[in-house]
Design a protein around this nucleic acid. Structure first.
Length: 233
DNA sequence: CCATTAATTTAGT
DNA sequence: ACTAAATTAATGG
């Protein structure tokens, strides 16, 4: 297997998948990023980062979906969030520590860009607008996720399932009908309940006409009802 | 390369 | 935990 790596020079100026932050970089800065970054593909199911590993490169998600998760000592998985394209993975770990606190695995086939951490840090220090955009995205994430976890800790299974459905519909796909990128196990791991109770509720929602489900294809039929359940737990 | 079958994973009870 | 169904990997032509 012979690869010609010289063909792989990135051209960030022409990149159509730039982050909000990267979009405001000057051409000269993007030129530096081009020379210090590389695009790679991952297949569905591949692990991009293992929790506990050293942070080395900045990873930018260009396309596809990624789950951010941790495993407990007993190998139970807790999924923290789903990462959409056009976001950087694990910035809190990058800036807050030297090791990755979470693991990342591809839910779909995925394209990422590895960016040299020194170059990235230099941009943060030297370009305030860039740094500002990064800070905005990290803060939004953090606010949103905290609300999700706070809500979750107060709600029962019904509310949590409704939340997760709304999460996919509003945040991830922005549609009322979507293909779940998850197994039922992962769906349960996202909301912190057993697979059994999660499917039980899912099927109950179908029986009551709130949802229709064919395999992994989920369609919301009664949005208001779901919102009410989400609100009242 | 495609078709069968074996093995693993997933979903529901 | 167990079974059925579905998905994926291995085998052979």
């Amino acid at each position: 297997m012979i690869s010609d790596f010289s063909q792989l020079q990135n051209n960030c100026n022409d990149c159509k998948d730039k982050s909000c932050a990267a979009a405001i970089l000057h051409p000269a800065e993007l030129e530096i990023v081009s020379k210090n970054s590389r695009e790679t593909d991952f297949k569905k199911g591949d692990i991009l980062v293992q929790a506990g590993s050293m942070t080395s490169n900045i990873i930018y998600l260009k396309s596809g979906l990624v789950k951010e998760y941790i495993k407990s000592a007993t190998d139970k998985e807790q999924i923290l969030q789903i990462v959409k394209k056009y976001t950087y993975l694990g910035l809190p770990s990058q800036f807050g520590d030297r090791v990755n606190h979470y693991s990342y695995a591809a839910l779909t086939d995925v394209k990422v860009c590895y960016i040299d951490v020194n170059v990235f840090n230099k941009l943060i220090r030297e370009n305030g607008n860039f740094a500002y955009e990064i800070l905005v995205s990290v803060s939004r994430d953090s606010l949103y996720n905290f609300h999700r976890f706070m809500n979750q800790s107060q709600k029962k299974v019904y509310g949590r399932v409704a939340d997760a459905i709304l999460y996919f519909s509003r945040i991830i796909f922005d549609q009322e009908s979507f293909e779940l990128p998850f197994t039922r196990q992962e769906f349960a791991d996202l909301i912190g309940v057993s697979r059994e109770s999660s499917t039980r509720v899912l099927l109950k929602f179908v029986a009551e006409g709130l949802l229709s489900i064919q395999g992994r294809l989920i369609t919301i039929e009664k949005m208001e009802m779901l919102e009410t359940i989400s609100k009242n737990g």
